[in-house]
Amino acid sequence: MVNRAITGDVSEPELCVAYFQSADFRSLAPRGQKVRRGILERFCINNNDGEKPYSELQSKHLRLRRDAMMDRPEAANNMIKAVRQVFKYAMKYQDFDRNPAVAVEYLAGNPDGFHAWTPEEIAQFEDAHPIGTTARLALALALYTGQRRADLVLLGRQHMTSHNGSDWLRFTQQKNIRNKPVHMEIPIAPELRVVMDATPMGDMAFLMNGYGRAFTSNGFGNKFRDWCDAAGLPQCSAHGLRKAAAARLAELGCTEQEIMSITGHKTSKEIARYTRSANQRVRAERAIDKMSVKKIGE
Rank of each mutant, 00 (worst) to 15 (best):
T133D: 08
R193W: 04
D197P: 04
R136I: 05
H183F: 06
K180W: 00
E191F: 09
Q173A: 00
T172G: 09
G156N: 12
A198H: 13
P187L: 02
P190M: 08
N164H: 09
Q147R: 10
Q174H: 12
V194K: 06
I177W: 01
T172C: 10
L141K: 12
V195A: 10
T172W: 05
L192T: 12
H163Y: 06
S166K: 15
M184H: 06
G132R: 06
G146R: 01
Q158W: 08
M184W: 06
Y144L: 06
K180P: 02
T199H: 03
N179G: 13
V153D: 09
L192D: 13
T172E: 12
R193C: 10
P130I: 14
H183N: 13
R178I: 05
A140R: 03
Q174D: 08
N176T: 13
T172H: 06
L141S: 11
T199M: 07
R149G: 07
K175H: 04
T133Q: 07
Y144A: 05
R170K: 12
A198Y: 05
L152E: 01
A138P: 10
S162M: 13
N179T: 14
K175V: 05
I186M: 02
V195L: 07
P187G: 09
H163M: 11
T134W: 04
P190V: 08
T161A: 15
G165D: 12
L192M: 11
R178D: 01
R178Y: 03
P130W: 08
A135Y: 00
M184C: 08
A198C: 11
D167C: 11
R170M: 06
T199L: 08
K175F: 01
L141E: 07
A138K: 08
W168M: 15
R136K: 03
T133E: 09
N164Y: 00
P181W: 03
A198I: 05
K175N: 03
T133N: 07
N179M: 14
K175S: 07
T145I: 04
I186C: 12
P130F: 08
R157Q: 15
L152H: 00
I188S: 09
H159K: 10
M160H: 00
Q158L: 15
A140C: 04
K180I: 02
A189T: 01
A140H: 02
I186N: 07
M196G: 14
D197H: 03
A135H: 04
P181R: 00
K180C: 02
P187R: 07
W168P: 09
N179K: 14
R178A: 03
I188A: 05
T145W: 08
D197Y: 02
T161N: 11
D151A: 10
E191I: 14
A138H: 01
L143C: 01
S166G: 09
Y144E: 01
I131K: 13
L152R: 00
L169N: 09
E185W: 10
R193E: 11
L192E: 11
S162T: 15
